[in-house]
Write a protein that binds this DNA or RNA. Structure first.
Lengths: 220, 220
DNA sequence: CGAATCCTGTCAGCAAGCTGACGGGTATGT
DNA sequence: ACATACCCGTCAGCTTGCTGACAGGATTCG
């Protein structure tokens, strides 16, 4: 999952950024709204964490603007404890959820997961694909009750497919989803990860559509 | 569809064989039961057309034997008009249908199609896959009401996938299904036909599972 | 703290698959 | 009967993808 963090408090920003990275999501962190606008135009984000008070304006204006432009990316607003009006206004402006500073990072994870699940159109974290049992919340895969151990990258890649069954994802799309700006990969890294995933899950779980991308196999 | 024809009458056998070939199915024609046994052990048939009176025995014995061995291939028995007991015995022994000689060849086609549909577990000839509308009886494919013209070979290949959604078919399996003994192909003919089919249907209708085979794409 | 292990991205060689082109045989039309 | 068009299998060169190996950095363990 790719996240845009808009937060000018450097200590909080760094903590949140690090936590997101440790959760094996990718994150771009900006401290101003103009940068957020630019980033949002350049990449597809799965989630935006949006502070309300920023040096060049209010998060609420940014949120209204992006909603008016038809952008449906889920937004969690970050508000001060005593700013209840920010929360109400934010939710009314189209935010999906809010968190009040200071917040516990495990609370952040829970919120991230909840929004991601809603966004993927699949609120139920338990998925079966062929003979695989997948828990999107616990980030586990098993076959016949036997767990299959996936690394963070492998999980992130697999999750991308599971959240979009049947949809072909190009290598560029996968790269954008798995890597933040400045962390793009060169060479054939996506192919390598797909190969590693296949080694663990079996060669018919993910299909290649040559010249286009990859998708979940048609396991019926 | 690959058919085993067991018929010692050379005129009838030739007429039936030619009709089957003209219908773009493949057929192996034998005149004796021992040859039929050998063929059945060597290849997977979709249907057997079985005469009752053969030089080396009765078709009914062959049918009983193959059913006892657990072979589920559909069988249409070919009987003389006045041999009603053959018909009853044949059906009781596990035949799927019967035809009485002499029969009209278009009647044979209808029977072939009916059995093939039942065998594929999909008695309904109308199938939708992604945005394709397929009529298995009329052997037509259309997209948005616009027909897509397939040649006989292309249709045979496509039909194989449609009848087994989600199942990976290896090149060998496809070859066995599309070509009779003595008509096997060399070189990369299956790949070429898949490529041609993709050119007409789109590149994401059939997925390649590298090193294993092909199957219908996961169009959801 | 050092050693061992693991994860991840890169590299590069290989290979399975893809596709344009061609020729022979068949079917169709005049 | 001849010309044309089409189908189909083969060929071969190209291409995209796959994967083993490696090295560097991060993590884990004693």
């Amino acid at each position: 999952m790719r996240i845009l963090l808009v937060e000018d408090d450097s200590i909080l920003g760094a903590a949140v950024r690090d936590h997101i990275v440790a959760s094996s999501h990718s994150v771009d962190w900006v401290t101003r709204l103009d940068a957020a606008t630019t980033y949002l135009e350049s990449a597809a984000y799965d989630l935006i964490l949006l502070d309300m008070m920023l040096p060049d304006g209010r998060g609420i204006s940014f949120l209204r603007s992006m909603r008016m432009k038809g952008c449906a990316t889920p937004v969690i607003i970050l508000t001060a404890l005593d700013q209840i009006s920010d929360r109400i206004q934010g939710l009314n402006a189209g935010a999906d959820d809010y968190m009040t500073k200071p917040f516990d990072l495990s609370e952040l994870s829970a919120r991230l997961n909840a929004v991601a699940r809603r966004y993927s159109g699949n609120p139920n974290p338990l998925v079966e694909i062929g003979d695989l049992q997948i828990d999107l919340a616990a980030r586990t895969v098993a076959r016949g009750g036997r767990p299959i151990d996936l690394t963070a990258r492998e999980w992130a890649l697999f999750e991308a497919f599971v959240q979009r069954p049947g949809q072909i994802m190009s290598k560029v799309q996968l790269e954008e989803r798995l890597y933040a700006f400045g962390a793009e990969v060169e060479s054939n890294t996506i192919e390598v990860h797909v190969s590693r995933l296949r080694k663990k899950l079996g060669h018919s779980v993910i299909d290649t559509v040559r010249g286009i991308g990859y998708r979940l196999g048609n396991a019926r």
